[in-house]
Design a binder for these strands. Structure first.
Length: 231
DNA sequence: TACCAGGAGAAAA
DNA sequence: TTTTCTCATGGT
């Protein structure tokens, strides 16, 4: 993956959509909650769940941990997988409490913070990186389904790359800059939501090459990617 | 009606 | 170690 190609895509997206001012949350802790709830789920459903959650509890780790299981699960219902996400959100909140709160976490070195997050039940690489980047402002590039899909269509991704391998490629090709990674990922999400969403060829796509490459996906959005164009 | 949507953990092979 | 299955609601 060539650095100038990645920078070029970024410039095109930024010129078209403008700064996105992400992540859509008021506090770092709200970012953490949203990162769990958005797993395999659209953001509109996450917002419904967040609204319901605010209706039963203040968004603080200790308060959420204190909620009965059925109350928390019911609040998360609109985000889907509510029983799974109840356990995952509770585990994340308990971890924050056990670590001494967000202030303590803010003092951790980036790699240590990321590793610690990956040890929390329900926090995989993408969720950890969402949190590290958007809640803690650290320079890690988030590789989500939108990112894979876009760069597969552009021919930058061959498929089968591991999450860590792909993240490393992006971080090697771009300046180590949290603000840049923040904006880039936000623009990728905006692009995915507005164009190229349901069909492999999209007339409205501003990244014309993105639609020429083509791609195929397995059922339920599994990351089985076929890339026609070369790197 | 069927498929898709910003994953991750557990079980099976 | 890798692959498959499961979890669930809401929109198109």
């Amino acid at each position: 993956m060539k650095a100038r190609d990645l920078v070029s895509v970024y410039r095109d997206l930024l010129a078209h959509y403008g700064p996105r001012h992400w992540w859509p949350a008021d506090t770092p802790f709200e970012v953490m909650v949203g990162a769990v709830l958005t797993q395999n789920t659209s953001w509109t459903n996450v917002e419904r769940a967040l609204d319901r959650l605010r209706g039963v509890v203040v968004l603080e780790p200790r308060a959420i941990v204190a909620l009965p299981v059925d109350v928390l699960a019911d609040a998360l219902r609109p985000a889907g997988y509510y029983n799974v996400k109840e356990r995952r959100l509770r585990a994340l909140c308990q971890w924050v409490v056990d670590r001494g709160g967000l202030e303590t976490l803010h003092r951790m070195e980036t790699r240590a913070l990321r590793t610690a997050l990956l040890g929390v039940h329900g926090v995989g690489p993408e969720t950890a990186d969402d949190i590290v980047l958007y809640a803690f402002g650290r320079p890690v590039f988030v590789i989500d389904a939108y990112t894979r899909r876009l760069f597969a269509r552009l021919g930058f991704v061959r498929g089968q790359e591991t999450y860590e391998g792909l993240r490393a490629r992006f971080e090697r090709a771009l300046p180590r800059d949290a603000a840049l990674y923040n904006e880039y990922h936000a623009l990728i999400v905006e692009h995915a939501k507005t164009t190229c969403r349901t069909k492999p060829v999209c007339d409205a796509c501003i990244l014309r090459a993105c639609c020429r490459a083509g791609s195929s996906f397995g059922r339920r959005g599994r990351k089985r990617v076929t890339v026609i164009a070369g790197e």
